[in-house]
C-alpha cells in the first residue's frame, strides 16, 4: 500500500527543491550582480565614471565647496560634503547597482551603474 505520508519520491523532490532554493538564494542575494562602476554627476552633468575595483578618493568642486567620493572594497560613499544637512554623507556605503546618494545644494551625486532605476512605483 502507498499509505505512508512521505513517499521516496517526495523526499527526493523536497531535497532537490531545497537545494535549488539554496542555490537560488546564493545567486540572487550573495553573488548578485557585482557592481562594476560608479557614476558621479556634478551640476546635473555626467562628470565621471570610476571603477569600484580600485580603492581611491575623488574630489569634486560644487557651488558650496569640495565633495569627496570614496571608493573602498567595491563600495562607494560620500566621505565629505559641505551641504548643511549631510544627508548624502549619512547615507553611508552604497554597494548595489542602482543605489544612489545625492548632495544638495552642492549638486554632486553618485550612483552605482547597472540596473534600471525608478523614482517611484505605484500599484
Amino acid at each position: 500500500m502507498t499509505c505512508q505520508l512521505m513517499r521516496p519520491g517526495d523526499w527526493l523532490v523536497l531535497t532537490v527543491a531545497a537545494c535549488a532554493l539554496l542555490a537560488l538564494t546564493d545567486r540572487l542575494w550573495l553573488a548578485s550582480g557585482k557592481p562594476q562602476s560608479v557614476v558621479v554627476r556634478s551640476g546635473g552633468q555626467h562628470a565621471q565614471e570610476y571603477s569600484l575595483a580600485t580603492n581611491a578618493i575623488y574630489t569634486f568642486v560644487g557651488p558650496l565647496g569640495l565633495s569627496e567620493v570614496e571608493v573602498r572594497d567595491g563600495r562607494v560613499r560620500i566621505a565629505k560634503d559641505p551641504s548643511p544637512k549631510q544627508y548624502c554623507v549619512k547615507q553611508g556605503w552604497l554597494a548595489r547597482p542602482g543605489e544612489a546618494a545625492l548632495c544638495l545644494p552642492n549638486r554632486i551625486s553618485i550612483q552605482i551603474a547597472g540596473g534600471r532605476s525608478f523614482d517611484s512605483l505605484n500599484f
Binding site: L5, M6, D10, L14, A17, A18, L21, L24, T25, L28, W29, S32, G98, G115, R116, F118, L121, F123
Partner: peptide
C-alpha cells in the same frame, strides 16, 4: 506590476515560503 529587476531579491523568500507551506499542506493532505 513591478517591472524592476529588484523583484528578484524577493524570490528566495517567496520560494522558501512556498516550499515550506507546500510541504506542510501536502503532509496534511496525505
Amino acid at each position: 506590476l513591478i517591472p524592476h529587476p529588484g523583484l528578484a531579491y524577493f524570490i528566495p523568500i517567496l520560494a522558501g515560503a512556498a516550499l515550506l507551506f507546500g510541504t506542510v499542506n501536502g503532509l496534511i493532505c496525505a
